[in-house]
């Protein structure tokens, strides 16, 4: 359906903006390495099913793309973040990983290793942007491209919400776990979305309070 395609495209766009920004500027300035490490963990743990199940060519190609681009991003960010004197990427990611794992143990579609990993990846994804938002807040202002990247990334999960509503009515399917974590993720972004709307859409520079 249209919401899901739009969500996936938004996700792709966010990655292209990110990689392009890093490569053009040859700098990791303003971009959180920790957030990108978390996303790599999210993709690897969620897409282990590549090894034993097949949905569609689209699905497989997208999964391979998301895993490989997230690892590529980490390599590039590592390379360029060394040159930055004040790199405010100091969010404690263990505070995100450990609770996500516990939530994965409690809420899952069956107490199996693969299901726990899948649930863990959903919980972790919902909060993975926090180091990036934290960094943005600390530095006070940011490059326009970085905010477009964060916006496109947030939009992807937000668009999945109407997709889930559509699927509930069209296919009678709903996944409480995916929907709950998707809503949490969108809520985590809500303050950013508001500021983005105020500053970028209304075209007046960008800075977080």
């Amino acid at each position: 359906n249209i919401f899901r395609i739009a969500g996936d495209l938004s996700h792709l766009v966010s990655i292209f903006i990110l990689i392009n920004t890093i490569n053009v500027k040859k700098s990791a300035q303003g971009i959180s390495l920790k957030t990108n490490i978390l996303y790599a963990v999210v993709f690897v743990t969620r897409y282990v099913d590549l090894l034993y199940s097949y949905t569609s060519l689209y699905n497989t190609l997208m999964k391979i793309f998301f895993i490989s681009s997230s690892i590529y991003t980490i390599v590039m960010l590592k390379k360029y973040s060394k040159n930055i004197q004040q790199y405010n990427d100091d969010f404690k990611i263990e505070y995100l990983i450990a609770p996500s794992f516990v939530l994965g143990l409690i809420f899952n579609h069956g107490f199996k290793f693969s299901e726990i990993l899948w649930s863990f990846s959903l919980w972790l994804e919902s909060v993975s942007i926090l180091p990036q938002l934290f960094m943005l807040q600390k530095s006070g202002e940011s490059q326009l491209l970085t905010t477009h990247y964060i916006f496109a990334l947030g939009l992807y999960r937000a668009l999945y919400i109407p997709n889930w509503i559509y699927r509930y009515f069209a296919e009678g399917r709903f996944d409480k776990l995916a929907i709950t974590t998707g809503i949490i993720q969108t809520l985590v972004y809500s303050d950013f979305f508001y500021v983005y709307y105020q500053k970028v859409i209304k075209n007046i520079g960008f800075s977080l309070p």
Partner: peptide
């Protein structure tokens, strides 16, 4: 309703 996980999504 079918509450199967939506594993066909990304």
């Amino acid at each position: 309703k079918n509450s199967q996980p939506l594993k066909d999504e990304l």
